[in-house]
Write a protein that binds this DNA or RNA. Structure first.
Length: 756
DNA sequence: GATTCAACTTAGCATAAAGTTT
DNA sequence: AAACTTTATGCTAAGTTGAATC
């Protein structure tokens, strides 16, 4: 039961626990309700294993499964093995230190494709921005030139293009040509992929020299309901004003969601809805419970049905229109390269739904207008124009930031941005740099660990707290844990904001000494539950920190993220709390891959090993997901398939047997051949069966673990690339198309011997 | 030092698209 | 080709971090 771990608390009279100095004094009252109705949590908690238990059981499972595993030899991957060419390429290290800029390096390759004749990319001046200075003082940072024939050719080409840059027109025409043949299809693939990772990076905070884009795509305007779709108040039909009607439709669309039944949601919604009402409506509509949105709700359901039932042609038309918008607004020109924008559409209005128990759920998320929008672009670019009759809030030219468009959102008052896709240079460089920072930590993590162990003994409380917190961050991959403003967000914590109530100390538990039981809601209100044996000294320190405190007091009362990060900065240049997560995730993947991969395995078995390694990381980082709604059924289906395959195998074996017997009697060529054929069939079926079984195992183990987040954000992609190369696994089995785009740099540069 | 702000990364879920089965 | 399942993508909330301001 989800509320279980709070039940002690809820029995205590909240009124008696007030303490003036407590930030959290009022939390108590609703504690027992916390997450009671959070379906996903319920599901998650149903599986009773703790993190640590899970880790163990995962290990064990692997061992067991390995024993059972069919011993089929690697027979399906040869093709791939032969494929990869032995490029010799050195990596260019990246320690995150900006280098001095020097005048006159060689410029970026002038490669881009251009949507023809829209006048978009015809900026007059950007050529001058071409030259990304390189620095020559630090040999380490030079893009190493690659000596294979292929790359040599490319380098030459690049140089040539460089020279071509001066006469603007020439280059441009080239581009136009390149794009022309791709007019109909979306497969404008003629241009070479730009290898930004072979170029110099900017220094001193400049993010770009030229930026041109078309601005955002606004949400479509509200379309009033047809008059036959009615709204009723207290049983009586009532025609709403357009403003009030729009907000009402937001609610109607969510009617099937459980949260429309929550008090907070309804209260917030109704309050904001009333703001949009005419004064007449305001005086009439005083009770949300008397509002009947059923017809609206039905109408929207019918609409979505109708959308599904559209003819192919209609669907195609929509698809084409979307493609057109993408081509027009989905790209920008940054420093002579056409780059994909991540989120060029402005968030449409609607009702805010935060994660977990969010105090602002149900509030109205305003429609964003051009007047709210700040545009960021080059002075000398063609500025995006606001829709007719409107103005931008501001147009600025700040090349120290990466965003193209921003606006302030009305729920929390935070700023939202339009930025580039992960495949872009600007995101990729940063990502690469992140992993280089984690590798740097690898080099000195022993020293840092020795240091914080030493600090556990410090006579200063703040130092001890800092050291224990750091230990948690390192060992358990906890997040830093900034403090949050109460009442503004859901009550979630990270390391520095842990409260006494989130830990239970067990002198002894299940035969282990000094066990700490963690139970708290982390980012996105995902529950972190883990029982961890810790060192005696840590345990004693925790007892000390918890002494004389109320459950709702901070565990680390002399610590916050700022103090912690300042300390980390002193230990290693560029070190922050989140680097530990990246480091521990990546190193775990590498270790697990080494441990779990067996060269003799076939491709599916190796991929299972990869997924298990990935899973170990996801568990470490507590990346959970709600079990898919159709999980049980899908497991069943798979089992049915497996059973059928087993049948088929038995049949095939029988046939083989009789063919053998037959061949023994007849002793002719024909029957011998028949035996061979049957053997092959058996083999094929065995392999298929094995593949299915592996799939089933993988799926089962993955029931409530999300692999995507770690794969995308924590695992140095070069580890995966190297692993693929080493074991002849096609990269497509590990990374899908988008992921390959994001990690193009790693795929290009990592060799099979790459070590994190 | 605390607080606020800005910029950017990380996160899970809903839904669209793609793939598979009937 | 419809129905169903699985995977990929889009969306946007929720974190972290460092700088600016109080």
């Amino acid at each position: 039961m989800s509320g279980d771990h709070f039940h002690n608390d809820s029995q205590i009279d909240s009124g008696s626990r007030h303490n003036d100095s407590h930030k959290h004094k009022d939390k108590y009252k609703d504690k027992e309700h916390k997450h009671k109705d959070h379906k996903k949590d319920k599901e998650r908690e149903k599986s009773k294993y703790s993190n640590s238990e899970h880790r163990d059981s995962l290990d064990k499972k692997h061992r067991d499964k390995d024993k059972e595993r069919l011993k089929l030899k690697d027979g399906s991957s040869d093709k791939q093995k032969d494929k990869h060419k032995e490029k010799k390429k050195e990596e260019r290290p990246f320690d995150g230190k900006p280098k001095k800029e020097k005048e006159n390096g060689f410029g970026s390759p002038f490669i881009k494709s251009e949507p023809e004749n829209d006048g978009f990319y015809h900026s007059p001046k950007h050529e001058k921005s071409l030259k990304r200075e390189r620095d020559d003082d630090d040999a380490e940072f030079k893009p190493k030139k690659i000596k294979t024939e292929e790359s040599e050719k490319k380098a030459k080409k690049r140089k040539q293009e460089d020279e071509d840059i001066k006469p603007k027109k020439k280059t441009k025409d080239k581009k136009g040509e390149a794009a022309t043949d791709g007019k109909k299809k979306a497969k404008k693939e003629p241009e070479e992929k730009w290898k930004w990772w072979e170029e110099e990076r900017y220094t001193d905070g400049v993010k770009w020299k030229f930026l041109e884009h078309k601005g955002p795509v606004f949400a479509p305007p509200y379309e009033p309901l047809p008059s036959n779709v009615k709204f009723y108040y207290d049983g009586k039909h009532m025609k709403l004003s357009p403003g009030a009607e729009e907000v009402a439709t937001f609610f109607a669309k969510m009617l099937d969601h459980e949260y429309t039944t929550k008090d907070v949601f309804r209260k917030n919604f109704f309050k904001d809805w009333r703001k949009e009402m005419t004064s007449e409506e305001k005086s009439k509509l005083t009770d949300l419970n008397k509002c009947d949105f059923a017809e609206m709700s039905e109408y929207f359901k019918a609409q979505s049905e109708a959308r599904k039932a559209m003819t192919k042609e209609e669907k195609l038309k929509i698809k084409e229109e979307n493609e057109r918008i993408l081509q027009e607004y989905g790209f920008c020109l940054m420093d002579n390269h056409k780059e994909r924008i991540a989120n060029f559409r402005i968030e449409p209005p609607g009702l805010f739904r935060g994660r977990g128990d969010h105090p602002k759920m149900g509030m109205l998320k305003r429609r964003i207008r051009p007047e709210d929008i700040i545009i960021n672009c080059s002075k000398d670019s063609k500025h995006p124009k606001p829709p007719p009759g409107t103005k931008w809030k501001e147009v600025r030219h700040d090349n120290k930031v990466t965003w193209l468009v921003s606006w302030t959102e009305n729920i929390q008052g935070s700023i939202k941005y339009i930025m580039l896709n992960p495949s872009s240079r600007i995101k990729g460089e940063k990502d690469w740099q992140k992993y280089e920072m984690a590798r740097k930590l690898k080099k000195c993590v022993d020293r840092i660990r020795a240091q914080y162990r030493e600090d556990w003994k410090s006579k200063e409380m703040r130092i001890r707290q800092r050291a224990v917190a750091l230990y948690f961050i390192d060992k358990l991959a906890l997040r830093a844990g900034n403090e949050k403003e109460e009442g503004e967000t859901a009550d979630t914590v990270g390391c520095c904001s842990l409260r006494v109530e989130h830990l239970t100390l067990h002198q002894e538990m299940d035969g282990q000494e000094y066990v700490v039981e963690f139970d708290f809601l982390g980012k996105d209100s995902i529950r972190y539950y883990n029982k961890v044996p810790v060192e005696k000294r840590v345990f004693k320190n925790l007892q000390l920190f918890m002494e004389d405190k109320e459950p709702e007091d901070d565990l680390f009362d002399r610590l916050n993220t700022s103090i912690l990060n300042k300390h980390l900065q002193e230990l290693m240049d560029g070190l922050t709390a989140k680097v530990f997560r990246t480091y521990n995730a990546s190193i775990t993947l590498q270790q697990q891959l080494n441990e779990l991969t067996t060269s003799e395995d076939n491709v599916p078995a190796k991929i299972l090993s990869y997924n298990r390694a990935n899973r170990a990381v996801a568990i470490l980082c507590n990346h959970q997901r709600a079990p898919p709604k159709t999980f049980e059924k899908s497991m069943q289906n798979l089992q049915t398939k497996i059973d059928a395959k087993k049948e088929q195998l038995a049949d095939a074996k029988r046939e083989l047997k009789s063919a053998k017997a037959d061949a023994k009697v007849r002793r002719d060529e024909k029957s011998k051949k028949a035996v061979e054929a049957k053997k092959k069939a058996v083999q094929r079926i065995e392999e298929q069966l094995m593949k299915l079984e592996v799939q089933a195992t993988d799926r089962e183990e993955n029931k409530q673990i999300a692999l995507g987040t770690s794969k995308l954000n924590y695992l140095d992609p070069r580890i995966s690339v190297a692993w693929c190369k080493k074991f002849g696994i096609p990269i497509e089995k590990i990374y899908n198309k988008t992921q390959r785009e994001k990690f193009a740099w790693a795929i290009d540069m990592a060799e099979k011997d790459y070590e994190f």
